[in-house]
Computed example of a mutant assay.
Amino acid sequence: MIKLYGNPYSRANRVRWALEESGAAYEEETVALGAGGTRSARFLEINPNGHVPVIDDGGLVLFESVPISLYVAKKYSPTELHVQSEPDEGRLLQWSVWAITELEKHIETASLHVTWLPPAARSADKAASGQVRVARCLTILARALEPTGYLVAERFTVADLIVTEVITNLVHTGVPLDQFPAVQRCVRKNLSRPAARKAFAEDIIRPFLA
């Protein structure tokens, strides 16, 4: 059985979702964020970076949510959550990496300066710049989704899962998803999947299912 070290309000959500989709047997230990949890001496022995998620799959310990999600998909759901052809795998890797190097990066910047930082520490210029970049990413994503509603292989894959999980953080940016109807439709469809409903805390996905 896979051991997942996670937290309901962290990137462990994408790993938990991948595990639920794959049907792999797993158990989760919820780890508090910060001192006493992810920064405790015990947890730093598991992941010296001090972050969740981490999995232990029969002694193979992996950290970083996107590689874990790709690993779970390929090992435990190779014909459904993963893909078969090399061109499709290339596209799957492309969108999975894009989700964190482009979309998530700009969502984080906008979220910090719109929501998370104390008002005195926020920068209106950084908030606006982050919002513009998020909108640009969503425009790119909408163009990719319009033909089939999926990113790879004309069906739901781990690439759709990773991108959708990143978008669940959009609510903190001040960028309205309804400006991108192709993306909004796909996010609603993906988060309505039974595995997604099991993987997320209800308050995280509720805004996208209304």
Rank of each mutant, 00 (worst) to 15 (best):
V66T: 14
R206H: 11
I167P: 01
N13S: 11
A35L: 13
K75L: 14
G174I: 06
L19H: 09
E202I: 05
V52D: 09
G34Y: 11
P194M: 04
R197Q: 15
D57R: 02
V15S: 05
E165T: 15
D203A: 11
L151S: 08
P176Y: 10
G37M: 15
I205T: 13
I2M: 14
T168F: 07
L33E: 05
R206I: 03
P176A: 15
I140E: 13
D203R: 11
V134C: 07
Y71G: 13
G23E: 12
Y26G: 04
V52N: 10
Q184E: 15
K189M: 13
Y71W: 05
E29L: 03
V163F: 03
R155T: 10
P176H: 07
C186D: 09
E146W: 03
R185M: 12
N7F: 09
K198W: 08
R133M: 14
V175Q: 02
F43N: 10
V132Y: 02
R143I: 04
E20V: 06
R122Q: 13
E45W: 03
I100H: 01
V52W: 05
G59A: 13
L81K: 00
V158D: 14
F200Q: 07
L145M: 10
A153Q: 02
I204K: 07
L92D: 03
S77R: 06
A135H: 05
A142T: 06
V52P: 12
I205E: 10
G6M: 03
I55K: 01
I162Q: 09
R42N: 11
V66Y: 04
A199S: 09
L81G: 02
L117K: 05
L44V: 01
W98C: 00
A144W: 12
D88N: 04
A110G: 04
W98L: 03
V166S: 02
A128W: 01
V134R: 01
T115Q: 03
L33K: 02
E21R: 00
I162L: 07
D178F: 01
A35N: 11
E20K: 00
R91T: 12
A124R: 00
L151D: 11
I162M: 08
Y5I: 12
S77N: 06
I46S: 04
P8L: 09
N7V: 09
D203L: 05
N49F: 14
A110F: 04
S192R: 07
I162C: 03
V114G: 00
T148V: 09
E146K: 15
L145E: 06
K189H: 13
V83A: 09
P207N: 03
T38A: 01
R11L: 08
A18H: 07
P181Q: 05
C186Q: 14
W95F: 15
Y150I: 04
P176C: 06
C137T: 04
T139M: 01
R193I: 14
H113S: 04
R143Q: 14
V61Y: 03
G37K: 10
E20W: 10
R42F: 07
P53N: 12
E146H: 12
V183M: 02
A35S: 11
S40Q: 06
E104R: 02
H51P: 00
K126N: 10
I46V: 15
T115Y: 08
I2K: 00
L70N: 02
E102V: 05
S22T: 13
Q184A: 15
F156K: 00
